[in-house]
Design a protein around this nucleic acid. Structure first.
Length: 948
RNA sequence: GCGGAUAUGGCGUAAUUGGUAGCCGCGCUAGACUUAGGAUCUAGUGGCGAAAGCCGUAACGGUUCGAGUCCGUUUAUCCGCACCA
C-alpha cells in the first residue's frame, strides 16, 4: 500500500480531537513545561509558509517534552484587536468583529491542517470580553498603584496618600498636602500613578480629524490623503514603564535569550551613568519668581541661587564647557530670554515645536538654534557661559538641558562650528602634544586619555577624573551621581475603535476608574468607525456611552448630568495591551473571578519556552516583561521574568521568479541564459506557482494574464528558464507560498519536516518549494520500511544504529537543531531499508522518535504495530552508551598536518602500536620516505599526525 | 554614526569541544526499469588536472603539529537603534 497522507492525516486529526489528546490540566506531582508561541494577529491574507515555522519548532519541542514525561502546556489564541480590521471597517462598513471572526476561522482551519498539539480548550482572544475584562482590570491596578523607589516595587496609591496625610513624606511642590483641594490632590497623585494622564505631543491631522502614528506621516503630510499634520498636545494615558527601567535591565541577566535580543533591549532601555549638576543662572533675582529655575543653596552662601539642572555622562569635561543648551520645550526659556533676543527665540521655539518627529529625525545633520541672551555660571570655574536653545537637545531625556563641551562631543562640536562658539580641549590622548581645536575636523569623543586644562583634575586619566569631579560636585552640594534611561513611558491611548475600552469615566474632568465588579466594560456599538466631526475618537459616535455611578451601569449619553452620570473615556487601548499578559491567562483561561488562580500560576510558574519573531524585541517583549513585573509586585505572578527561554525564528524569505521581456518586442520573452538577454530585456515577476525548478509552464503563463496570451518565447534546450531572486515574501512579487497547497500535495508531515529541514530555526532563509520532494520521498521510504518490517528480534547492527539515532535526535532536539534531526532520520531510514529484514521493534522506536516531527505518520505506524493508545503517550526511548561503543576507528593519518590516507585500527590502540601500524603500511612508508618522525601527535579516536 | 549577527559547492545546508571540509537534501549528469515519466531504483557530482597531485570555507595576516572553528585587520550582507548629552 502506498503512503496515503490524505487518508492518514485527517484520520488522526479527528482522533486527537475526539480523544482530547492535547487537553492539559494541572497534575500536581508531575513535572510541568510551558511552551508558548507568540499568538498571531489574524490578518485577512491567511498564513503563508513563513508563519508556521516557529509553530512547528515549538510543536516539536512540546511533543518531545511530553514524551519525556512532562505535563506540557501548549496553548494558542489570537491577538484579535488591531488596525487592519478597523481600516477594513472604515472602507466597507463591515464590523471589525465580523471580519476578525472570519479571519480567525480561516487561521484555525489552516493551523488545524498542520497537526499542532495545541490545547484549544484554552484559546484566548484579546477582543473577547471575558479576556479583556482582565486587561481592563490590570489597567485599574496600574492606575491605583505608584512606584515606591525605596522598596523598589509598586505599592497601592492609598499607601502614598496615607504617608502624605501623616506627613511622613512631604509633597514635591510648593503646596503641602493639607493645603491642597481634593482636585489638586488628584492632580498631584497623577504624577505617581503607574497609569496616568499627561499631555503628549501627537501627530494631529485636522483634515482627517484624527491622530496618526509616526509611520502614517511623511514630510509633515498624512500618508492617506496627503493632508498637513501638526504637532498637538493631547491628553493621553501613559504607563510609567520607566519606573521599571532598572529591573528590566537587571532581569535580562537571568533569562535564556539570544545575546543579540538582550542587547536590543539593553539599547532600547539605554541605561547611562553620569552626574546631575546644578548650573546657577547669572541673574540677580529671587529664585522663587523665576519659573523653571530652582533654588539651591551652595555651601557657604546663605542665599538660594536660581539655577537649572543638567545631566552629563562626562562630568570630567566640565572645564571644557563653552555654552549651555536648553531644549525648545524647556520652561526656563521664557524666563531668562533677554528682551533683545525674545522675538528670535520665540520664532525658533514655535518652529521647533511644530516639527514632526520625522522631520526632526530626517534633518539630524542640520544644525539649528538660537541664543537666549542669558548666561549661566560654571560652578567649578565660575565662568559666564552663554545659554542657547536648540532642538538637538531632547525634552524627554535627562532634564532637557545640557552643558556643551564641543571639543569632546560631536553634536556640541557641530553646533559650536555652526555658530562660531569657542572650543576648548580638556581631554587629550597625549597631554604633551596639544593641537589647536580650531583646526580640528571632528571632536575627540573617546573616553580614553587624560584630562588637560581642567584645574584640579588635570593630568588624571579620564576615568579617574570622572570620579573626582563627581565627588567634588557632591561635596559642594551642586550635584550628584545619577542614572538616566533612554526608555520612555508607553503611550497607552489610541484614538481608535477596535481596541479595549478604558474602564474610566470623567468626573468634572478628572478620571475615575469603574468598580472592578463592573468589568468588563463592553466595547459599545457605533454607527461610524471614523473619528467624529469634532475630532473625537470613534467612540464619540456611541450614543450609549456614559457611566451611571449610582446604578453602576452604562447608560445613554443624554443622561449625563455630571452629578450621577458621567462621560466615559473615548480612547481605546493599544495593541500591546491585550498581548502583555495573555501568557498568564492561558494558565487558567476560564476563570471568571480572577485573572488566573494562584494554584495555576504556582504550578506553571512561567513560560519555559517562548517562540516568536525578533521584531517584537522593543515592543511586546518589553511591555510583557513590565506587565509581569507589575503583577509580580501585586503578588499575582510568581516569577519576575515571564519568558525563561526565548527562541526567535528567522524570517522565511520569498524566492521570486522572473521572465525576461524584450525591450523592443512586448510579446517576446527570452529564456534566462540566452546570450545578450541581460541588455535586451526587462525582468518581470512571474507567479512561482506556474514555475517548476525555474522552468516556466508556458501554457499556464499564457493563461495567467491577458497581456501574456500572445507571448512568444526564445527557449534554451526547449525550455524557458526563469531567473530568480530572494526577496521578501509578498503578494506583489507573486512569490507567496500558501501552506494549504503544499499540504494538499504532500501532506502536513512533509511540510512540517521540510520547513525544519530548510535550516536552523533561528536563521533567515529563502523558501524554495523545489526541495520538498526530498523529504516527501523520505516519508514514503519510512512508510515502506514500516510495511516491510517483521516481528523478529533486532540484530546487533540495527540496535547499534537505532541507539545512535536516539542519541543524535535527543541531542538535536535539546539544542533546537531540527534540520540535522531530519537529516539523521533520512540516513537511518535509508540504512534500514538496505537491510534484508528489519525488526518491528526498531521501526516502533523510530516512530516514537519521529512523532514530534511528523505526528500523523508516526501515529499511523505506531497503531499498525499494535498499539491502541496515542503515540503522544509513548515513552521517549533512551539509548545505552554500551550500544554505541565501536570496536575500531578509522584514523585519518596526516603528515605535516596534511591528511594523506585513512587507516582502520582497533579502538583502544596505543600510540606506539598505531605508529607501528602506520610504518607498516605501504602508504605510510611512502610519506615517511625512510625518515624518522620528528614529532608525533596521537589523539585516541581522533587523529594521527606525523611531523617529518 | 553606534550596537548585534552572518559569510562554506549551482542552491538550502552539515562539521556540537581546534582534529578526515562539504553529511543530508535540491538541482545536474549517466544508466536501469518502463508504452510513458514531473514515478521508482543505481552510480557520479567543490575547482583545476590525463593522472600523480595541487588548490579550496568572503579577503589579507597571525597563533598552532593541525584553523571553517581561535586572534587581528578589511570587505559585503542582514537586523536593531539613531541628535539619548
Amino acid at each position: 500500500m502506498d503512503y496515503n497522507f490524505n487518508e492518514i492525516e485527517p484520520k488522526w486529526q479527528n482522533f486527537w480531537r475526539e480523544h482530547h489528546t492535547y487537553r492539559c490540566s494541572i497534575v500536581p506531582d508531575k513535572p510541568h513545561y510551558y511552551v508558548l508561541d507568540m499568538f498571531p494577529y489574524p490578518s485577512g491574507a491567511g498564513l503563508h509558509v513563513g508563519h508556521p515555522l516557529g509553530y512547528i519548532a515549538s510543536d516539536i519541542f512540546a511533543r518531545y517534552k511530553r514524551l519525556r514525561g512532562f505535563n506540557v502546556l501548549h496553548p494558542m489564541g489570537y491577538d484579535a484587536y488591531g488596525l487592519p480590521a478597523e481600516q477594513y471597517a472604515i472602507q466597507t462598513g463591515q464590523h471589525p468583529a465580523i471580519t476578525t471572526d472570519q479571519n480567525i476561522a480561516r487561521y484555525r482551519e489552516q493551523l488545524d491542517k498542520l497537526g499542532f498539539c495545541f490545547d484549544w480548550d484554552r484559546e484566548v482572544r484579546t477582543c473577547d470580553p471575558q479576556y479583556y475584562k482582565w486587561t481592563q482590570w490590570t489597567f485599574i491596578q496600574l492606575f491605583n498603584h505608584y512606584y515606591d523607589k525605596e522598596q523598589d516595587k509598586a505599592r497601592p496609591i492609598s499607601d502614598l496618600v496615607k504617608q502624605l496625610e501623616d506627613g511622613s513624606i512631604p509633597t514635591e511642590c510648593d503646596k503641602s498636602w493639607a493645603d491642597m483641594t481634593e482636585g489638586e490632590r488628584q492632580d498631584y497623585l497623577m504624577n505617581f500613578r503607574l497609569a496616568y494622564l499627561a499631555d503628549i505631543p501627537v501627530n494631529w491631522c485636522p483634515e482627517l480629524g484624527t491622530v496618526l502614528a509616526n509611520d502614517e506621516v511623511v514630510n509633515g503630510l498624512s500618508v492617506r490623503g496627503g493632508y498637513p499634520v501638526e504637532r498637538k498636545l493631547m491628553r493621553q494615558w501613559s504607563l510609567r514603564i520607566t519606573a521599571y527601567a532598572q529591573r528590566l535591565v537587571d532581569g535580562l541577566e537571568e533569562v535564556d535569550w539570544s545575546e543579540s535580543l538582550k542587547e536590543i533591549q539593553r539599547n532600547w532601555i539605554g541605561r547611562s551613568e553620569g552626574a546631575a549638576v546644578w548650573f546657577p543662572l547669572d541673574v540677580k533675582i529671587n529664585a522663587n519668581v523665576l519659573p523653571g529655575a530652582q533654588a539651591y543653596i551652595p555651601q557657604g552662601t546663605p542665599d538660594p541661587v536660581p539655577s537649572f539642572e543638567i545631566f552629563t555622562t562626562r562630568p570630567d569635561t566640565i572645564y571644557g564647557v563653552t555654552f549651555m543648551v536648553l531644549c525648545p520645550e524647556h520652561e526656563l526659556i521664557d524666563t531668562i530670554t533677554t528682551p533683545e533676543q525674545r522675538a528670535e527665540v520665540q520664532a525658533y521655539v514655535t518652529w521647533a515645536k511644530n516639527r514632526s518627529e520625522r522631520e526632526r529625525q530626517a534633518e539630524v545633520k542640520k544644525v539649528s538654534g538660537v541664543f537666549t541672551g542669558a548666561f549661566a555660571i560654571n560652578p567649578l570655574t565660575e565662568e559666564r557661559i552663554p545659554i542657547w536653545v536648540s532642538d538637538y537637545v531632547l525634552a524627554g531625556y535627562g532634564t532637557g538641558a545640557i552643558m556643551a563641551v564641543p571639543a569632546h562631543d560631536s553634536r556640541d562640536f557641530a553646533f559650536a562650528r555652526h555658530f562660531n562658539l569657542p572650543i576648548r580641549q580638556v581631554v587629550a590622548t597625549d597631554p604633551d602634544n596639544l593641537t589647536d581645536p580650531d583646526t580640528w575636523t571632528e571632536s575627540l569623543d573617546s573616553k580614553t586619555g587624560y584630562s588637560v586644562n581642567s584645574g584640579f583634575v588635570s593630568g588624571m586619566k579620564v576615568k579617574d577624573a570622572m570620579k573626582a569631579v563627581i565627588d567634588k560636585i557632591e561635596t559642594l552640594g551642586i550635584g550628584h551621581r545619577t542614572v538616566n534611561y533612554r526608555l520612555r513611558d508607553a503611550i497607552f491611548s489610541r484614538q481608535r475603535y477596535w481596541g479595549e475600552p478604558f474602564p474610566v469615566y470623567y468626573k468634572q474632568g478628572r478620571p475615575c476608574t469603574l468598580p472592578e465588579e463592573c468589568l468588563p466594560l463592553l466595547l459599545p456599538e457605533v454607527k461610524d468607525f471614523k473619528p467624529t466631526a469634532t475630532g473625537e475618537p470613534p467612540l464619540g459616535h456611541a450614543s450609549r456611552w456614559a457611566w451611571d455611578e449610582k446604578n453602576r451601569c452604562v447608560v445613554d449619553n443624554s443622561l449625563i448630568d455630571d452629578v450621577n452620570v458621567f462621560p466615559l473615556e473615548l480612547s481605546t487601548m493599544p495593541g500591546f495591551a491585550g498581548s502583555s499578559g495573555y501568557y498568564l491567562r492561558y494558565m487558567d483561561p476560564h476563570n471568571n473571578d480572577a485573572y488566573f488562580s494562584p494554584e495555576a500560576v504556582n504550578y506553571w510558574q512561567n513560560v519555559d519556552l517562548y517562540v516568536g519573531g525578533a521584531e517584537h524585541g522593543t515592543g511586546h517583549l518589553i511591555y510583557a516583561r513590565f506587565w509581569n513585573k507589575f503583577l509580580y509586585d501585586l503578588g499575582l505572578s510568581v516569577k519576575q521574568e515571564p519568558f525563561r527561554k526565548l527562541v526567535n525564528q528567522g524570517m522565511i524569505q520569498g524566492r521570486s521568479n522572473f521572465v525576461y521581456r524584450s525591450k523592443t518586442d512586448n510579446n517576446l520573452y527570452l529564456s534566462k541564459n540566452i546570450p545578450g538577454r541581460e541588455e535586451s530585456t526587462v525582468p518581470i515577476h512571474v507567479d512561482i506557482n506556474i514555475v517548476n525548478n525555474d522552468v516556466l509552464d508556458i501554457e499556464r503563463f499564457k493563461a495567467w494574464r491577458p497581456e501574456f496570451a500572445n507571448a512568444r518565447f526564445e527557449l534554451e534546450d526547449g525550455k524557458y528558464i526563469c531567473g530568480w531572486e530572494i526577496e521578501k515574501m509578498s503578494k506583489s512579487m507573486f512569490n507567496v507560498q500558501n501552506p494549504d497547497d503544499l499540504v494538499a500535495r504532500y501532506g502536513a508531515d512533509t511540510l512540517r519536516l521540510y520547513e525544519m529541514f530548510l535550516g536552523p530555526v533561528e536563521q533567515a532563509k529563502p523558501w524554495d518549494t523545489n526541495g520538498i520532494e526530498g523529504v516527501f520521498r523520505f516519508l514514503k521510504k519510512f512508510w515502506k520500511l514500516s510495511e516491510n518490517c517483521s516481528d523478529i528480534p533486532a540484530d546487533q547492527e540495527s540496535l547499534k544504529l537505532i541507539h545512535q539515532t536516539i542519541k543524535k535526535i535527543t541531542d538535536d532536539i535539546e539544542r533546537f537543531s531540527f534540520n540535522t534531526s531530519v537529516s539523521t532520520f533520512m540516513i537511518t531510514v535509508s540504512e534500514l531499508l538496505s537491510r534484508q529484514q528489519v525488526s518491528s521493534s526498531i521501526v516502533e522506536c523510530l516512530a516514537i522518535l519521529m512523532a514530534p516531527f511528523a505526528p500523523h505518520i508516526a501515529e499511523e505506524v505506531y497503531h499498525r504495530l499494535g498499539h491502541d493508545t496515542s503515540v503522544c503517550d509513548a515513552v521517549w526511548p533512551t539509548y545505552d552508551e554500551k550500544m554505541l561503543v565501536e570496536d575500531s576507528f578509522t584514523y585519518p593519518v596526516s603528515f605535516n598536518g596534511k591528511m594523506r590516507f585513512t587507516l582502520q585500527l582497533p579502538a583502544g590502540i596505543s600510540q606506539n602500536d598505531a605508529i607501528a601500524a602506520v610504518k607498516a603500511d605501504g602508504r605510510g612508508q611512502k610519506y615517511l620516505d625512510g625518515k624518522e618522525p620528528k614529532r608525533i601527535i596521537f589523539v585516541p579516536n581522533k587523529i594521527i599526525n606525523i611531523v617529518v
